[in-house]
C-alpha cells in the first residue's frame, strides 16, 4: 500500500517543453506509467523516448525502455484517449494555474504541479476553482510525489528512495531528498514521499498528507519537514495531537532566518512576528513529535520516534 500514487497511476504530462521532456524521460526510466502529454503546438505528434532503465524504480523490467507518447491539444482529449487519472504540470508560470484548472475540469483526480514562480493571485483563483471539485492538487513549486518502485511523478532523484514503512511530507525539495537519503541509510524505506511545495497557496497541506498516511495500513511512521512562514506546521501539530495514531518525527528549516526576508520560497518568510521556527518547533514538541535538532538528524529522529 501507499498513498496518492502506485502502479495503477496513469500519468499525463502538461507542458512537453524541454523541462517536461527531460522529466518524462526520467519517469519512464523509473517505470512510471506515462500515457501521453498535452502541448497544443505539438498536438497530433508523437514524442519518442528510449534509454537505459533505472533499476532503482519498478522492478523486473528489461535493461532498456522505449516509449511513444501521443501529444494532445487539451486535457479533455488526452484524458479520454489515454484513461489518465493523474497529471503532472511543467507549464511555465504565467500559464500554470490555468493548466491546473484545465486538468480539474477534465476530471483528472490527482494533479501534481511542479512549476515554480506562479503568481499568488493566480493560485488564489485556481484554488477557489478546485473547491467544489473532487480533486487533489499537490504543489505548486514542489518536487512531486513518489511511491518507491511503483510510481515517480516529478523531479526527485529516484534512486535515493527505498520501499518501506515511512511516509514523508515536506515543503522543501532538496531537503526532502536529504531526509529520504537519511531514512534509506538508516534502513527505513518509504511508503510514499510527498513534496507539498514552498508557495503560500498550495493544494495539499501537511494535515491532508498526515491524514492519508494515518489511514494507510502500510505506513508505520511519518516524517514532516517544515520551514518558516505561515502556520501550516502549527495546524499540523494540533491535528497530530488529536488524531494521529502513528509516531511522527519532524524538522523545521529556518531557525536562523531573519524576519522580513523571503528565504527563496515565496512562502518562507517571517512577517509580523509570525511563522518563526521557534514557534513551530515548540508546537511540534508539544504534540509529542520528535524534532531533529539539525538537518543531519532527521533519519535518527525518525528512528527515535519509532522507539
Amino acid at each position: 500500500m501507499s498513498v496518492l500514487v502506485d502502479t495503477n497511476t496513469r500519468v499525463l504530462v502538461q507542458g512537453m517543453g524541454q523541462t517536461g521532456r527531460f522529466h518524462t524521460d526520467t519517469a519512464l526510466a523509473y517505470g512510471t506509467n506515462m500515457v501521453g502529454a498535452v502541448h497544443p503546438s505539438k498536438a497530433g505528434t508523437i514524442e519518442h523516448f528510449e534509454g537505459e532503465t533505472d533499476h532503482s524504480g519498478v522492478q523486473g523490467r528489461a535493461d532498456t525502455y522505449s516509449a511513444d507518447l501521443p501529444i494532445f491539444r487539451s486535457v479533455v482529449e488526452a484524458a479520454e484517449a489515454t484513461g489518465a487519472n493523474a497529471s503532472v504540470i511543467y507549464v511555465p508560470p504565467p500559464f500554470a494555474a490555468d493548466a491546473i484548472m484545465e486538468a480539474a475540469a477534465a476530471g483528472i483526480k490527482l494533479i501534481v504541479c511542479i512549476t515554480e514562480g506562479i503568481p499568488v493571485g493566480d493560485m488564489v483563483i485556481a484554488k477557489r476553482y478546485l473547491e467544489d471539485k473532487n480533486v487533489r492538487l499537490v504543489g505548486p513549486n514542489c518536487p512531486g510525489v513518489i511511491t518507491p518502485q511503483q510510481c515517480k511523478i516529478g523531479i526527485m532523484p529516484g534512486y535515493i528512495h527505498q520501499p518501506g514503512k515511512i511516509g514523508v511530507v515536506s515543503r522543501s525539495g532538496t531537503l526532502t531528498y536529504e531526509a529520504v537519503f537519511q531514512l534509506t541509510n538508516n534502513g527505513l524505506g518509504q511508503t510514499t514521499a510527498i513534496g507539498i511545495g514552498g508557495d503560500p497557496v498550495n493544494g495539499t497541506n501537511f494535515v491532508d498528507c498526515l491524514d492519508l498516511f494515518n489511514q494507510d495500513p502500510d505506513t508505520e511512521g511519518v516524517i514532516m519537514i517544515g520551514e518558516i512562514g505561515g502556520t501550516a506546521e502549527e495546524e499540523a501539530a494540533e491535528w497530530i495531537q488529536q488524531y494521529m495514531t502513528k509516531p511522527v518525527a519532524g524538522f523545521i528549516a529556518g531557525t536562523t532566518a531573519p524576519a522580513g526576508k523571503r528565504m527563496g520560497h515565496a512562502g518562507a518568510i517571517i512577517s509580523g512576528g509570525k511563522g518563526t521556527a521557534a514557534d513551530k518547533i515548540a508546537a511540534l514538541k508539544k504534540a509529542g513529535i520528535v524534532v531533529a535538532p539539525t538537518p543531519t538528524d532527521m533519519g535518527t529522529a525518525m528512528l527515535e520516534a519509532l522507539g
Binding site: 515543503r171 532538496t174 536529504e178 528549516a253 531557525t255 520560497h265 539539525t294
Partner: peptide
C-alpha cells in the same frame, strides 16, 4: 534548494 539552503545556515549556526 531553498529549504536545504536555509537549513545549511541553521547548521552552521548550530
Amino acid at each position: 534548494g531553498a529549504g536545504l539552503a536555509m537549513s545549511t545556515m541553521d547548521i552552521i549556526k548550530y
